[in-house]
Design a binder for these strands. Sequence first.
DNA 1: CTCACTTCCTTCGATATCGAAGATAAGCCG
DNA 2: CGGCTTATCTTCGATATCGAAGGAAGTGAG
Lengths: 378, 378
Amino acid sequence: MNQRLPVQGAQGDLLRLVATGKAESRADLARLSGLAASSVSLRVEELLDAGLLAEEGSGTSRGGRRPRLLRLSETAGVLAVADLGAHHVRLGLLDLSGAPLVIEERPCEIADGPRATLDRIADAFDALLAEHVPAPVPLRGIGTGIPGPVDPLTLRVVTPSRMPGWNDFPVAEHLATRYDLPILVENDANLMAAGETRCWPDRRNLMVVKAGTGIGCGVVVNGRLHRGRGAAGDISHVRVRSDSSVICACGHPDCLEAYASGAALMAALSEAGIPVTRTGDIVGLVNDAIPEATSLVRNAGRRIGEVLTVLVNFFNPDVVAVGGSLSAAEPLITSIRAAVWERCLPLATRDLEVAPARAGRDAALLGAGALLLEAALT
Amino acid sequence: MNQRLPVQGAQGDLLRLVATGKAESRADLARLSGLAASSVSLRVEELLDAGLLAEEGSGTSRGGRRPRLLRLSETAGVLAVADLGAHHVRLGLLDLSGAPLVIEERPCEIADGPRATLDRIADAFDALLAEHVPAPVPLRGIGTGIPGPVDPLTLRVVTPSRMPGWNDFPVAEHLATRYDLPILVENDANLMAAGETRCWPDRRNLMVVKAGTGIGCGVVVNGRLHRGRGAAGDISHVRVRSDSSVICACGHPDCLEAYASGAALMAALSEAGIPVTRTGDIVGLVNDAIPEATSLVRNAGRRIGEVLTVLVNFFNPDVVAVGGSLSAAEPLITSIRAAVWERCLPLATRDLEVAPARAGRDAALLGAGALLLEAALT
DNA sequence: CTCACTTCCTTCGATATCGAAGATAAGCCG
DNA sequence: CGGCTTATCTTCGATATCGAAGGAAGTGAG
């Protein structure tokens, strides 16, 4: 069953606070929402009656009466989210708070084109719903992550590399023919940033770097995802300083990704007689103290760090989180940190954290859940 | 007479829309504010009664009845703003819409220290008020621009260069001993960005570069000034690619400002036997087609542009506005453009405007007025 | 010239929210 | 153990805002 969230005005604001885990009682809601306690009481009553919230037990006293705890109702609804890669898709169902109900990975070739790929994803959603969700629990929204830029105004994919047929394809419209629900279409690095943000409470400005086969970055400003024109955060084609000159796949010389991406490291290792089939294997080599691997990863971290220094000076983020399959290599993080600390202004790095990403491999799906909840409540 | 603006809730929202020139009638206010026409009518009546708004004539019909035009009342109040330089201060009085009533420049040595400098500015404010403002018109706020980083949480100056005695000085607290009013303390590049934003309607993401004796940049994200930790937008110490190596005043090699700042250009011209005393004179030399000057300015533009390409890819702004005393040199702008267009992603530069700043020499004061109005209405 | 439609602004009853007061149940101190 | 303070949540009258309807004054077509 598909059904949009039946809330309006202050109800949505309150539901959001409970769904995101920020509030657990009426008193919490009054403190966080700015509404008077009487207004909160009335609106919560409506959400309880609508089956969106439920009461469950009592909280701890803060010196007065114990609060009655509120939680998202199990019948509040689910969100269907997918994160598309070149050769596979990771997809699943989340409850409105973003907690996974089921997540799975399936083979899927993005080169098959958008219609076939999106229909296969929708079929998978329907199968998961039938298998895992009781009939009275409604589907409230659909979210998809795309490995290319997405124009935030038109929600169309924009000149993606290695994705034939996807340019200018209206992903949201296509999915809307099948679901009359809020639909999210977003770049995967942006989803990853949205997911990572949930792991850094009280931080409003983050950069989430994806160090994988490619290099990407998502940006969160004042707690909100910054999309720009759909290409915001792109650092892969920044020109780095180099004694030699390497032509990037994009045609320009000396792009960051020509030196520091997982693909570039794999090529360099193959040339050194160390064949690697997946970027994740590079981490294993580093852990085994293979000198060539460690040196390459360290060099990649230094280069990424040099690019990040420009951005950290400019943006003054609270956090630089590094994810992606290379991020488990500790020399990558330490050399990024060294480069950032060496060249950044002291004020720009005051209280800055450069750390491995916390959200794990499903950051993009969790990010999709968070953004979709927001879309559903607006 | 000092008096805070006596508005609350929706009154402030409506006053802001009239003061910023976005609305001129009740119908405009209803469209822009989201309030019902009946609510707008009631609140406007209160603002008229409070002497903050006035009615004046009729507007043009849009097919139905002509609207009654609203404007800021002359008795609504004034704002006192100042922009501090190393050797002078530019200060004046603005009305609540930001229109200058009087602006003047006075000699002032920042090296005299904060107390003496700020007291002198306050004395100047008081003199301007006595001379130019009728007694019933209240002062509603004080704004000051500082040529160094300002911590947005503490409103203290942070490790400014060449400003002895100013580090960690609580500028706002000092001024508050004299004025019980909203007080703004902000970095001058940020004020310039706030002022420039008003000249680019419907643009929400801007970078405002100041190419003067030094190099600075202000950043506006989603229509709001981005301060970061107080150092956001700083591009002067980004390391640029170079065949040689020049040590910057900060101690690091190859900072942007060691190559591309007005001070650096002046030094290079002196070495070429062309003595220059003010960065503004470089523009004259370029206009006279002195080859050394044009070459230096073009090279500076290219370097600034190279740094900007990283930031444009990352941030995807709508506008890059270039101000400061060097910005009148056309080769500077054209070589910035060339560098940006050459290396940026097509999506990042789609609809981007790289242009001379429009706000003129008082951008910082106008920016102070805009931010101060916001402070007064919050 | 008249009539129908549009736009602006006001009036009024309905609805949402505020703020004060009160009920209930905690914790803490003497 | 009792009294006082604190915290949570509810009740109720006051206030802000909404939404519908209406009055006034425009415009344009027939």
